[in-house]
Computed example of a mutant assay.
Amino acid sequence: MFLNNIVFAITANMEGWELFQNSLLPMIQGAIKYTIPLTLVSFTVGICLALLTAIMRLSKSKILTAPARVYVSAIRGTPLLVQLFIVFFGLGSIGLTIDPFPSAVIAFSLNVGAYGSEIIRASISSIPKGQWEAAQTIGMNYGQALRRIILPQAARVSIPPLSNTFISLVKDTSLASLILVAELFRKAQEIAARTYEFMLLYVEAAILYWIVCFALSIVQDQIENRLDRYVAR
């Protein structure tokens, strides 16, 4: 009986290791085909939206600041999962059907836009008012001063927290599996549903997410070190 238990444990481990190896490629393919593109597209669109929203928040016109405040408050005050379901299932229920991947892009972009706008707004606000006055002195209007003087300086301040937002977005893309986007975690779910090896497959997915985020954190550190050296000059 004891020997049978040993043989069973060894066989189970061997089968688990084989499943781990066989499931690795589909998960990596899901990451390359969906997770990474979803992250890049959503972050790019989100940052553009964040910059626009931040500028609106800093405007003296209530016509611009009011909708920007409502947007930021609504997104920050509701869970990302709920936002994702509203875009995919909610809009579909009223006749506006959007495919899973574009739905995920819309939801993630809106989320990044709201959180990113607060980072950018704070970064712009941190620039001394003397910079604005100096730009006006040499004949620059508001748009020119913002583009040539303020935003380049604000970018150095906002890059670290925006990098954290990007890394968090990589992990948040796993929520897209709930609307059938075949990204990394969805692949793990599909394989686990066939093999019933939920712990093994979910841990494997977690390891892959960790590897990607760890690599991105190294890149983030390099960028921050270069910025520190640039500012120190």
Rank of each mutant, 00 (worst) to 15 (best):
Phe88Leu: 08
Leu180Phe: 10
Leu146Ile: 05
Ile120Tyr: 11
Asn111Pro: 06
Arg148Tyr: 14
Leu19Tyr: 06
Phe89Asp: 00
Ala206Ile: 09
Phe89Met: 05
Ile223Gly: 04
Glu190Arg: 08
Thr44Phe: 14
Ser93Asn: 12
Ala12Thr: 08
Thr195Gly: 01
Trp17Leu: 14
Val170Lys: 02
Gln222Leu: 03
Thr11Phe: 07
Ile10Tyr: 03
Cys213Thr: 15
Leu110Asn: 00
Leu184Arg: 13
Ile218Cys: 08
Ile94Trp: 01
Phe185Met: 12
Val87Lys: 04
Leu216Gly: 13
Thr165Lys: 15
Ile124Val: 11
Ile10Asn: 02
Leu201Asn: 13
Tyr115Trp: 15
Leu162Cys: 08
Ala206Asp: 06
Tyr34Met: 09
Met1Val: 04
Asn141Leu: 05
Lys60Thr: 12
Met56Tyr: 01
Leu38Gln: 08
Ala134Trp: 04
Cys213Met: 14
Leu40Pro: 15
Phe101Lys: 15
Gly113Asp: 13
Val203Trp: 13
Lys60Arg: 15
Gln189His: 04
Phe101Leu: 14
Ala31Asp: 08
Tyr71Ser: 01
Phe89Gln: 11
Arg76Ile: 11
Tyr196Gly: 05
Asn111Phe: 12
Ser125Pro: 02
Arg69Lys: 15
Leu52Gly: 01
Thr137Ile: 07
Asn22Asp: 12
Leu84Asn: 14
Phe2Leu: 12
Asp172Tyr: 07
Gly139Ile: 08
Asp221Asn: 15
Ala154Gln: 04
Ile159Arg: 01
Ala104Asp: 07
Leu146Met: 13
Ala68Asn: 00
Pro160Tyr: 06
Phe85Lys: 05
Asp172Pro: 03
Ile6His: 07
Gly46Pro: 06
Lys171Ile: 14
Ala192Tyr: 12
Ala176Trp: 10
Trp210Asp: 10
Asp99Leu: 04
Ala134Val: 06
Gln153Ala: 06
